[in-house]
Design a protein around this nucleic acid. Structure first.
Lengths: 224, 224
DNA sequence: TAAATAGTGTCTATCAGACAATATCGT
DNA sequence: ACGATATTGTCTGATAGACACTATTTA
């Protein structure tokens, strides 16, 4: 039994997006055994002949399962052990990815065909393997990084207002939809006023049923 | 060729310690091919039949190579790809560990027998595989965590003075021995005065050629 | 004009860095 | 007493949170 000598190696992806003031994570239904029928994070077995590294494996998983190319993808942590997969010793490198709302393709948005967005804080009854734990791990890391850095920018569409950016941050920092975190408007704007990562689009405004709001975009050359 | 179907899986450990105001990382000389004779981080190939998870593999590596049991060991990041090991597709889960100075066994301290402590900021000419990159990655993570949390406590001996603790933090935060970072004494003591993670040992003092210093120890129940 | 949201200004408690002052030991 | 380090105290500039105020649009 080769499984006793070599572990299964795969890459899983926690793909997050924000819609309707909800932080969502993408799940796919497993078609084959083991755990057939259960919801799982999109993932793929490593193909040493085709994948140059693990990020390639992760991106291939998204391509194969949901036909998506994400702008931001980072490795998070590795889950491994003898008991997390019934087939034997397995190793899964968890990645997390962020998808701006306006880049969600129609095939994913429609929530059919074994693909759905789940509430990141309550992804469902029982998930395949240790994916519930993986989601929680990714959820925590996401909240952590929003506190420090400018990571939420990866979730914004091409153009956005400061209020929209603040909503996204509030959603990510909240433990769940029931206990929303409210950030102070003044402090929030102060913080991003000093940031070189966003610039305002001159003359561009978001119009609603009230005073229009200045539109911003991510600065050119912004990475990470 | 099985290597074309299954990657090599291993766990490497960056073991840090502070001595003589230097941050050091432990290296072992490779005995067998590939890269025989080069210095490398201690590591071990995954043994699915014996290792329950990757932390077990990492701890086994330290046991086998240098007969050391470390109190603190954490997973850091996974390095993988087709070109980092001449044998083919390989995957290595980098861990990092901290060893208090008074727990360094004699066999390691003596720096013989294919084991040596290297300067963490200049580990040497050429190391095996991508281990130079791995050390730099671990070095950065260590500096980062010292900024935020109370991680340096894992590097302290059973009892220590606040000045000793401050030295360790300064060494870790410094880019290298040439440009030492100096922390303010008052601010440093303020920070740890509020911390519940250390407590003073009543009546215990460190005596030198000057005013004795209060000794502290890590609080019971302190983890991470 | 009213409603609603955008955007700005101000006050304050907190905190880190800088630095001075005092305390207590060995010699 | 002196040198050296420990320990404490004070001042100040920067900052985040709270909150009030003004501005500008649509209806």
């Amino acid at each position: 039994m080769v499984r006793q000598l070599y572990p299964l190696v795969s890459a899983d992806v926690a793909l997050f997006s924000v819609a309707d003031d909800r932080l969502q994570v993408l799940l796919v239904r497993r078609e084959h055994a083991p755990e057939a029928g259960l919801w799982a994070l999109p993932g793929a077995l490593l193909q040493p002949l085709g994948d140059a590294d693990l990020e390639a494996t992760a991106r291939r998983a998204l391509r194969e399962k949901i036909s998506v190319e994400v702008p931001y993808l980072a490795q998070l942590r590795t889950f491994a052990g003898a008991s997390r997969d019934p087939r034997g010793w397995s190793l899964s490198v968890l990645h997390f990815a962020l998808l701006p709302r306006d880049q969600v393709p129609a095939v994913v948005r429609s929530s059919v065909d074994g693909v759905r967005w789940a509430d990141a804080d309550a992804p469902g009854r029982r998930l395949a393997f240790d994916h519930a734990q993986q989601i929680q791990s990714a959820r925590t890391a996401l909240r952590q990084r929003v506190q420090d850095h400018d990571l939420p920018l990866h979730l914004m569409p091409e153009r956005f207002t400061l209020t929209q950016l603040q909503r996204v941050c509030e959603v990510i920092l909240s433990p769940g939809p029931e206990q929303p975190v409210r950030l102070d408007k003044g402090a929030f704007r102060r913080r991003f006023a000093k940031s070189p990562d966003i610039v305002e689009v001159p003359g561009a405004f978001e119009h609603g049923a009230q005073r229009p709001a200045q539109l911003f975009r991510v600065a050119t050359g912004f990475q990470f």
